[in-house]
Nucleic acid binder design. Structure first.
Lengths: 262, 262
DNA sequence: CGTATACTTGATCAATGTCAACAAGGGTGG
DNA sequence: CCACCCTTGTTGACATTGATCAAGTATACG
C-alpha cells in the first residue's frame, strides 16, 4: 500500500541531511592543527593521470589525504568488471586505517598529489592526540554519509534519476573541495566511470545526459563541461516529484519517448 | 587500460575481503574493556518489536550498542517511500557519533535491548582513552565495509543475484553475532524489508526466493526459516559465474533494474 | 474460528542491457 | 600544420527483465 505521504517539507527537497556544520566548527575537512599533525608524519607523492594509487588486496598500511586532483576508488568483481565506490576530491581521506588489506583499488583520474600517512605513525599520534581521533571519527562518518547517498542513488530504478542524483553529488563534492560556486562543472571521469558508479551501462548514462540536455536541465559546452540550467527541475528529478502544478516550466523527463521508434 | 575479462581466481569467489582478524585481536566487536567503558556511561533500554529507536532528523546525541534483537536502519525518501540501509545484530553499533541529527531512522524488527550512550560522555571518555577511539574507528571501518557490500549488491541488475548476495550478507551477520554455524537461518525481517534493502519490489524478492528454492539452492521450512543447501551454486550466483555445464537453468545477469517512476 | 497481515503467483508493459555502427575528440607523427 | 588513428561518446534496434496491477493463498494473532 503506497501510502502517499505528503512531502516532508524542509528546504528544497531532502535527500540525506546536509551536514549542518556542527557547532560552527570547521565546515568540512580537518582543522589546520589536525592537518599539520598528519602532514608531520606523512610523505607527499605526486601522481600522473591514470596511475594506480593502490590496488585491492594489496596490504594496506597507509591512509591517504588528497591534496590535488581527483581519485576514484573502485571494487573489482570476480568476473573482472568493476564498480565505482567513490570519487575523492582534494581534502578527502581514503584508504583503510584499520584493515589489513585494501578492500578497494584507487586510481587517479587527473594528475595530482597526496599525503601518504603510515598507519603505525598515525596510531602513535592518536594515543597522545584524542582530538585528532575525534576528527577522524567525524571524517569517517562523513564518508558513511557519502555512502548513504550513493546507496540511495543506486536505489533509484530510472536512469535519469540516477544521473540527476549523481550530478547533485558531484556538485556537492566539487563545491566543498574548492569552495567556489562556478557555474561550469567539469567531469573528471569518463562516461564509463560514471556508469560504473551509478550502476548503469555507459550507453544509458549517455542517453540520460542527452535527455537532461534536451529538456534544458543541463547545458553542455563540451562532453565534459556543463552547467545546471534548471536547478528546480533537477531537484524535482532527484526528489522523484512529478511535475506538479507548482512547476511553471514542466519538463516531462519520462513517459515521452524522444525519438522512440519503438 | 585494464584488460580484464579474466577470472581472478582466489579462494571461493571473492567479494569484499573477509576481515582477516588483524593481528589476532578480537575478531569482531569491541574488547571487553572497551565494552565495559561504554557500559559505564550508557543506559540500558529494552524495546518491543516494531518500536522506533530513533527517527531521521531527530537530534542525535546518542550512540547505540545493540545487545539483543535486530534493528534495521532506513532512510525515508521525499516521496514517502523508504530504503533499507542496514540491519543491525547484537554487538553492532549504530547512530551518529558526530552528526548533529540522525540521518536515518531505526526500527526494531524483533524485541531486544541496547545500550544508549550519550555522546558528550563518550567524548569525555575518549579524551582519556585513546584505545577506545581506535576501536571505534575500527568499528566505523567495519560499517564502511558493510556498506561496500551493500553497494556491490545494489550494483547487480538481476533479482536472484541481489537476493543471493543478501543471503550471504545475512549469514555473515548472523554468524558473527552469535558465533554459531547452525544450518537453519531465520529472517527477522519481512519480504518488504528485504525488498527495501536490495532495491527490488517485494514481488521480485518473493520470486527470487521461490526460484532459489526451486533450484535446490535454498530450502524453506517456513516462510522465514531456511537453510542453504547448495553453497557452491549460491556462491556461483554471487560471483556471477556462468553455470559450468551443470545447471539446467540458465542465469543471465543484467546490469540494473528499472523502477518506480510513476 | 475468523480476520488482518504476510506472502505467492500471474499477466502486462515500460525501461534498460546488449549488440552494433557511427560520430566526435584528442593526440601523435610526418 | 595537417592527416591519421585510436579512444571516447552518441545513437539505433531489439530482447530480457523487473515494476506494476491484480488475485489468490498461507500465516499470525486475537
Amino acid at each position: 500500500m503506497p501510502s502517499n505521504r505528503r512531502k516532508l517539507s524542509e528546504g528544497p527537497g531532502l535527500w540525506i541531511p546536509e551536514r549542518p556544520s556542527l557547532g560552527g566548527k570547521q565546515q568540512r575537512g580537518l582543522s589546520d592543527d589536525d592537518r599539520a599533525a598528519l602532514a608531520a608524519i606523512a610523505s607527499t607523492v605526486s601522481f600522473a593521470k591514470g596511475v594506480q594509487i593502490f590496488r585491492a588486496r594489496d596490504k594496506a598500511g597507509h591512509l591517504y589525504l588528497l591534496l590535488q586532483g581527483v581519485v576514484k576508488t573502485y571494487a573489482t568483481l570476480p568476473d573482472g568488471s568493476t564498480r565505482g565506490v567513490g570519487f575523492n576530491f582534494p581534502d578527502d581521506l581514503f584508504g583503510s586505517a584499520a584493515e589489513e588489506r585494501h578492500a578497494l583499488s584507487a586510481e587517479a583520474l587527473v594528475p595530482g598529489s597526496l599525503h601518504k600517512i603510515p598507519i603505525p605513525a598515525l596510531e602513535a599520534v592518536l594515543r597522545n592526540n584524542a582530538g585528532l581521533g575525534l576528527a577522524l571519527i567525524r571524517r569517517l562518518e562523513d564518508r558513511l554519509l557519502d555512502q548513504h547517498r550513493h546507496l540511495l542513488l543506486l536505489g533509484r530504478g530510472d536512469a535519469v534519476g540516477r544521473v540527476a542524483m549523481f550530478i547533485a553529488l558531484l556538485e556537492r563534492m566539487e563545491r566543498v573541495s574548492r569552495s567556489s560556486h562556478a557555474p561550469w562543472l567539469y567531469l573528471p571521469m569518463s562516461r564509463s566511470d560514471i556508469a560504473d558508479f551509478v550502476g548503469l551501462s555507459l550507453e544509458a548514462v549517455s542517453r540520460a545526459f542527452t535527455a537532461l540536455a534536451r529538456d534544458g536541465i543541463l547545458k553542455f559546452r563540451a562532453k565534459r563541461h556543463f552547467q545546471v540550467t534548471d536547478r528546480a527541475a533537477l531537484q524535482a528529478l532527484i526528489d522523484n516529484t512529478p511535475p506538479d502544478a507548482a512547476k511553471p516550466r514542466a519538463k516531462r523527463p519520462r513517459r515521452t519517448a524522444p525519438a522512440p521508434a519503438g
